[in-house]
Write a protein that binds this DNA or RNA. Structure first.
Lengths: 225, 225
DNA sequence: CTTAAAAGTTAAGCAATCTTAACAATAAAG
DNA sequence: CTTTATTGTTAAGATTGCTTAACTTTTAAG
């Protein structure tokens, strides 16, 4: 059965997994949810029984497709509510989060779609976080390459080059990169000290400067059209 | 502690008490809430322990001030949400009730006041039911005297006379009744067969016709100003 | 007034979500 | 590679809100 508690667990598990790419620990969840670690283990068993998560004793939690879907629905509701409360009802920035935290669990999909429509199908909430659409798809979001440590190993598309200086342009054209190029991020050094990317078969080292100028968005998966 | 379940119990207990003026029975609640009678007894003990209701074994439930206050808050939220969903979000008449049933328990007073303001402090919901204001006061509602069986013994004010025929006007003036008069309802006969009212010290018998033409609203309580 | 039907209560138990305390596994440090 | 600190699990128990079944009180009918 779907409960408020379970929705909250899944929401946090999902978000954390997106952030780290690693299994979520008991301690992290106990902290975030303000409950004992025993409570986490307990719930983990129940969520696993419903195939919402994969849970391996002593080795953390991962979401399964069903759990992911539920989590995304809750996140969608949360973000739409935040926007709605802020923009339509003129609530304060500071109040909006807690309010949405409550409403997100008692809002039907139908109502949520009404609100979505009312707001003009927004893609981002007041914090700039992406709002998944009614099918659970997140809008592609472009970020500075220099800030993308978490996403190493994945394919990205260059969507903006935030620097028009000759040096930068020249360097990029020299290594065969232009707007729309698809590259693979191999390594992002912390503190904006550059990056390692792969363009086709060639591996290139990028300075911090340039990594900060390049805005990249996840490349489409699946077959090309 | 305040829970969704308790709010629902109180809401129904309060409404039923307003309607009948009598203690609420276990069977009635079990029916309304779709739970066993044992569950009602159980909850009654818990609500009584919190002084939300007065509960006497085998003799039903009455609300206490604290419970009344809570119930009115929930009713206010319910009705405001219904209006909001219908008018602002264009939801269907049929969907609005169930949706409000959920939202009413997860909406802060602050948010509710925003919605109230957004709607222009409405006094009635889409069903015509009165919406209590933020202090829990219901707007005075005028009703045909012929339909007010429930309210015998109380003081009312004549707020509308929905019949301009000479006979009616003459009769009323003969017994000393005009717009604004305060009378006490002594007896309302069912099937619109008339009423017995007291105007000052005099007792008058009213025909069904006239009882249907007189719109009355609860008289103000407390000291006159 | 008695008695059967209706209404209400109690007892035992279950599921969900917690808690604390004791114990077990893993990871980190030497 | 052992030892210890950290992390995680289990067991037992509490609370909320239910259920069913057995029992008690009240009400209504004769």
């Amino acid at each position: 059965m779907k409960t408020i508690s379970k929705e909250n667990y899944l929401k946090i598990i999902f978000s954390r997994e997106e952030e780290t790419g690693k299994p979520i620990t008991t301690t992290y969840l106990a902290d975030k949810l303000n409950v004992s670690k025993a409570a986490i283990t307990d719930m983990a068993r129940r969520l696993a029984a419903e195939e919402l998560i994969a849970y391996e004793r002593y080795h953390g939690i991962r979401t399964l497709p069903k759990g992911k879907k539920l989590a995304v629905e809750v996140i969608r509701k949360h973000r739409l509510w935040e926007l709605f409360l802020l923009e339509v009802l003129n609530m304060n920035w500071s109040e909006v989060h807690d309010e949405a935290e409550l409403l997100e669990h008692t809002t039907s999909d139908k109502l949520m779609n009404r609100i979505d429509k009312f707001l003009g199908h927004p893609k981002f909430d007041p914090h700039g976080d992406p709002i998944p659409n009614r099918n659970g798809k997140f809008p592609k979001t472009a970020k500075r390459m220099s800030l993308l440590e978490s996403a190493e190993g994945k394919k990205y598309k260059i969507v903006r080059v935030n620097d028009a200086s000759k040096d930068v342009i020249d360097f990029l054209s020299k290594i065969g990169i232009e707007l729309g190029s698809e590259i693979t991020v191999k390594k992002i050094l912390p503190k904006n000290e550059g990056a390692l990317i792969k363009n086709g078969r060639r591996l290139h080292s990028i300075s911090g400067n340039i990594a900060a100028a390049l805005f990249i968005a996840p490349a489409e998966k699946g077959r090309k059209r």
